[in-house]
Computed example of a mutant assay.
Amino acid sequence: MDMREKLQIVGLYMSMHETPPINVVGLANRLGIKVYEADWPSTISGKIQKDREKGGHSGFAIFVNKSHSRNRRRFTIAHEVAHFVLHEDLIGDGVFDDALYRSGLPNKIEQQANGLAADILMPYQIVQANLDMSIDALADMFDVSTAAITARLSTVSSAGSFVS
């Protein structure tokens, strides 16, 4: 499956689940990725890797730090899904993301993954339609941290989105 097909699956899944919060585990499963919790130090957020035993029909599995908050785990899963959609060829034996979503991949690659993760968790059109809500209310609506929704609000005016 190429990037265009993966983005179509993401777009279709999101159009079928228009009411936030988006079920990121459901989206990962739809893309053929299994999601697991891992017992890691707080400095590690998540990892995506090819895994013959634990991977879904895509052959990939996402592992997320079970000690992190629900909001953090949701963003991590969306971020790792984004790596699969945008950068499958760069995953190799696995991409570990630390608590700042740094993996050793170039910053541009991590920014792209963060951008698509934001598009998934906080769809542009829904954010824009609810700009009259408070930061806390928006964070609750999308099941994200106030830091994530604040960052998203700073990009709403730029109208750039991976998922239309």
Rank of each mutant, 00 (worst) to 15 (best):
I48M: 07
L12P: 10
G55R: 02
G104H: 06
H17Q: 07
L31Y: 04
E110T: 05
N65T: 01
N107Q: 14
S58N: 03
F60C: 02
S42E: 12
S103Q: 07
P41H: 11
V24R: 09
Y36N: 06
E18R: 14
K47F: 06
F75D: 06
F60M: 03
V85I: 01
I48C: 00
L27E: 00
G94P: 08
F84E: 04
A99Q: 15
S69V: 05
M14P: 04
P106N: 03
F84S: 03
Y101Q: 08
A61D: 12
I62Q: 04
V25R: 11
G59M: 03
V81F: 02
L27S: 02
N71L: 10
L100A: 12
E37V: 08
M16F: 13
I91H: 03
P41L: 09
S15L: 08
D89Y: 15
W40D: 06
S69K: 11
K54P: 10
I44P: 00
T19I: 05
H87W: 02
K66E: 12
E80F: 03
V81Q: 04
H17F: 11
E80G: 06
Q112L: 02
F96W: 02
G94A: 03
E37R: 10
H17S: 07
H68C: 04
I77A: 05
L90D: 13
Q111S: 13
A78Y: 08
G11P: 10
K47S: 08
T19H: 13
G32H: 03
I33K: 04
G32V: 01
N114D: 09
A82Q: 07
G94W: 10
Q111C: 14
P20T: 07
H79T: 02
N114H: 05
N29A: 11
T76G: 06
H57A: 13
F84R: 00
V85M: 02
V64M: 05
I91T: 01
I33N: 00
H57N: 14
R73W: 08
I77W: 02
D51T: 12
N114G: 00
L100S: 11
H17A: 04
D97E: 09
I33A: 01
I48G: 04
L100C: 14
E53D: 15
K54C: 15
A28P: 04
F96S: 04
S58G: 01
M14R: 02
I77P: 03
I33T: 06
P21N: 09
S67D: 08
Y36T: 07
D97K: 00
P41I: 12
